[in-house]
Design a protein around this nucleic acid. Sequence first.
DNA 1: CAGTATCCCCCTAGATACTG
DNA 2: CAGTATCTAGGGGGATACTG
Lengths: 117, 117
Amino acid sequence: MSKKNNSVEVICPLDYAFRRIGGKYKGRILWYLKSNEVMRYGELKRAVTDITTKMLTQTLRELEEDALISRKVYHELPPKVEYSLTDEGAEMLPFIDYLRHWGAKQMEKREMVDLKC
Amino acid sequence: MSKKNNSVEVICPLDYAFRRIGGKYKGRILWYLKSNEVMRYGELKRAVTDITTKMLTQTLRELEEDALISRKVYHELPPKVEYSLTDEGAEMLPFIDYLRHWGAKQMEKREMVDLKC
DNA sequence: CAGTATCCCCCTAGATACTG
DNA sequence: CAGTATCTAGGGGGATACTG
């Protein structure tokens, strides 16, 4: 994130936006959070098929840094952490949703198996 | 493209869509094509700052394969090739635009220099 | 439960040279 | 003008083991 945001020069707003939500799992995470309002770490881990803990943590931190999601820690044992969309994150939903439909249409055209999200 | 589309298994429509328009330059190319209706290869090369011919060609081919742009070749000397949005490509514009605005807002918040697109 | 910490591979993208 | 063809580097992402 620091690299994406600082070291690598940003060309324009569109370029910036794509880098911020362009990770391999970001779209799906935002999407799952939409449907569930609030999700725990383990829940997300199960929802985002095949993601590793490393990538999940890393992606969640980037989304948090960009103020697209918020992270609430309950200091108890066992630990409990809840993730949810911020208002800004919710602003991305129309876009995400449109992409989903576009993707589904494309997959149908190409006769690919649609596993849904 | 063959790899992205075939070898690597697609998880869901959202995942698929992100791979298709998630390249480093795709958003900007679609955006420039919107403003100009039709653009020649060299024009695009100048518009998309710092892109190499290899990446430009590769990206244009992928967009064409996904039916987001069309490519018209004039068989004359010197060669002339024009690129334009398809109807399907044009369908992406509202969302590209949405992303641009979101990106601009974010950049302002972070006091980054906005070079426009 | 919710993460860290390493090690490592591969793929995207960049640099450079060449061509019908 | 509109591309190909190679070669290469960097970093995003994967696998695995460990922890407060």
